[in-house]
Structures are given as structure tokens and as C-alpha cells.
């Protein structure tokens, strides 16, 4: 893989509110995205993946850690320098209805995206090219519409066009597909593939859907309660997941072609006090897990996990390794 265009280094964020217990949303997370790469960040709601996205976009300030875009730290930038630099990293959000100023037309939205803080007027041709790239053709039909006059799928395509307008190095897409029907989902993924082929943009795709992660990503990072539980090449993570949480996520995927492993209807879970955050739900939890927080260790080529019970791939003999392969890894995009 080529060098990283986006590096997240040891990011941490705790939310404190009056009369509220502090919430450790992101804890010491490091992640890289290379040019032309797609990294899927997978986790349940409350795992901190959306907070991580906002940290990476520098929409909120981390308590610790750095965001490095094309080798330069966004953390040390201020004012105009920051404003120019941040155009290199663009978001796509889950809800296309909330993603646009409802009082601006498509023309106004796109010209804003193309110009940024600059003064020069965006050309009609450039806007038309952007719209054509996301299959909103002919441009004349869309330029003077308001976002609410578009369908949900069209709006999400417009969001892709807007994100591409500043020619970013990375796009951070926070659940961009979860509101979309399956036929729209395929359409949006195809667009993302085309855009990547054309511009070499890197994607950090945040999703709760293992199915999408499997089909679309080169690498997968699994987040649980603010930490990276496991990360590695998609094929390797899917074929031989190292963390019990990853295995659980894979087991419950409702695929059309493979019977999901039977989940038992478990009673209420208690929260972890100390040790590994996953131990209350973990079938392998031991005394060590309850006391000691596991570190993220590299156990295979580019494949790491934060689990006391995960053994290196060369090690063999570990009971976890003999688990059946759940979903064959398909290295995509």
C-alpha cells in the first residue's frame, strides 16, 4: 500500500457535561488511510465511530492525539491555513436531508463547495461535470432545485458530488448507506468506486454493516467502546478474525446465502468496570480480562487485535484459530 494520506494518531476524546458522568467516546485510536484505499470502520452504535469521524474532520477538538493529512498535522493549524488544509478531507453524512442548507439551490451549494473561501465564481461547466459524475443529468434540470426537491438517493449523490468538489485526498463517509434501500445502496457504492478510480481519493467508510464492509473495503477496523478491537486487511479479518467481538459481529450477519450462527437471547448485560471493555459479553473472558486492559498487538501481517486470548497467526494451536471461517473474505475495490 502506498503512503498514508490520512493518519489518525492516538486520538482520544472524553465528553464531559454538567451533572453527567464523563463519556470516554474515543480512547487512543490510531488509523491510517492510503491514497486509493478504502478503510471500513465497523462498530455498533455508541462505539465512538462517529466521534472519531468528527475528530478526523477536526469538527471537534481531541483531548489528545493528532490528525495528519498529507503529512501535515491539522492540529497545529489555525485560521486560513486550517481552512485551506481541511478542504483535503471531506465528509458525507448519513442523513442526506440534513446535509444541505435547505435555503440554497444545488447551484449555490456546488458553487460554495468549489469556491470554498475563494472569491472566483465557479463555472457552470465545472458544476455540470460534477453533477454528471454522480448521474444527475442533465445539469440544467438540477441546478436550480432545492435539496428537498430531490429524492433521498439523488440527495446522497449530490452529497458525494459536493464532497468531491474540493478535490479531497480523503472522504470520511459516516453511514452514508444506512438510510438507503438496497438498490440505491448498490448505486451509491458504484459511484464511490468510480470516483476512486478517477481521482484516487481514499475512503474512511463508517458503517455498522459488516456486509458492506466486506464488499467494499481493503482494510477493516473494528471499534468497540471507543477503542480499536481489531484491524487488518479485509480478507484476513473476515477469514480469520482475531477478536471475539469481530467473530460475534460476523456471526450475526444475515447473509442471503449462509445461515447466521444462532444467537441466543441473552439477558441484560452489565457494563465493564475495569479490564477489557468486551469482557461482560465475551465467551472467553478470564480473570486477566476482567483486570487488565488488552493492548492492540500485531499478530499477522498488518493485522492487529486487542485481546489477551488472540494468538499470533504463526502460533497455531490456539482454540480461537480453529473456529470455522464464517464469511469468505472478498477483497474489493
Amino acid at each position: 500500500m502506498s503512503t498514508a494520506v490520512l493518519e489518525l494518531r492516538h486520538l482520544s476524546k472524553t465528553f464531559r457535561g454538567r451533572g453527567m458522568a464523563p463519556v470516554r467516546a474515543v480512547i487512543d485510536v490510531s488509523l491510517e488511510v492510503a491514497a486509493g484505499e478504502c478503510v471500513a470502520l465497523v462498530g455498533e452504535s455508541g462505539s465512538g465511530k462517529s466521534t472519531l469521524a468528527r475528530l478526523a474532520l477536526r469538527l471537534i477538538e481531541p483531548d489528545a492525539g493528532e490528525v495528519i493529512l498529507r503529512g501535515q498535522s491539522l492540529m497545529r493549524m489555525r485560521g486560513g491555513t486550517l481552512r485551506r488544509a481541511r478542504r483535503g478531507i471531506q465528509p458525507i453524512f448519513q442523513d442526506p436531508a440534513a446535509s444541505f442548507n435547505p435555503r440554497r439551490t444545488v447551484r449555490s451549494l456546488l458553487s460554495q463547495a468549489i469556491e470554498g473561501a475563494g472569491r472566483e465564481r465557479a463555472g457552470e461547466a465545472e458544476m455540470a461535470a460534477l453533477l454528471a459524475a454522480v448521474m444527475l443529468k442533465p445539469a440544467a434540470e438540477y441546478l436550480d432545485r432545492y435539496p428537498h426537491e430531490l429524492s433521498g438517493g439523488q440527495r446522497q449523490r449530490l452529497a458525494i458530488a459536493r464532497a468531491l468538489a474540493p478535490r479531497p485526498a480523503v472522504i470520511i463517509a459516516d453511514e452514508p448507506l444506512s438510510g438507503a434501500d438496497v438498490s440505491i445502496r448498490a448505486q451509491l457504492l458504484n459511484l464511490l468506486i468510480d470516483m476512486q478510480a478517477r481521482s484516487g481519493v481514499g475512503y474512511l467508510l463508517i458503517t455498522h454493516d459488516m456486509h458492506v464492509a466486506r464488499a467494499f473495503s481493503h482494510r477493516i477496523a473494528v471499534m468497540y467502546r471507543g477503542r480499536i478491537a481489531e484491524r487488518g486487511p479485509t480478507g484476513s479479518v473476515l477469514a480469520a478474525p482475531l477478536h471475539p467481538y469481530t467473530r460475534q459481529l460476523l456471526a450475526v450477519v444475515h447473509s442471503l446465502d449462509r445461515l447466521p450462527r444462532d444467537a441466543t437471547a441473552k439477558p441484560v448485560r452489565s457494563a465493564a468496570g475495569t479490564g477489557c471493555g468486551f469482557h461482560p459479553r465475551c465467551p472467553l473472558a478470564s480473570e486477566t480480562c476482567r483486570k487488565l486492559e488488552p493492548m492492540l498487538r500485531e499478530l499477522g501481517p498488518g493485522h492487529s487485535a486487542a485481546c489477551h486470548h488472540a494468538a499470533s497467526k504463526e502460533g497455531g494451536g490456539d482454540p480461537i484459530q480453529s473456529q470455522p471461517q464464517l464469511i469468505p473474505g472478498i477483497n474489493a475495490c
Binding site: 438498490s183 448498490a186 457504492l189 458504484n190 468506486i193 464488499a215 475495490c333
Partner: peptide, 23 residues
């Protein structure tokens, strides 16, 4: 057929995902 293909995120020979065109 189209729905099942899109749900499977099946890949076409050109690398794209199978989808249902139109509205």
C-alpha cells in the same frame, strides 16, 4: 432477481455492484 443481487452486493464482471437501474 435484481433485489436479491443488490442485497448480496454481487459484483459484475466490470467490478461494479449489481443494481436495479431507473426509478
Amino acid at each position: 432477481r435484481g433485489l436479491a443481487g443488490a442485497a448480496r452486493l454481487a459484483r459484475l464482471p466490470d467490478g461494479h455492484f449489481a443494481m436495479i437501474g431507473g426509478d
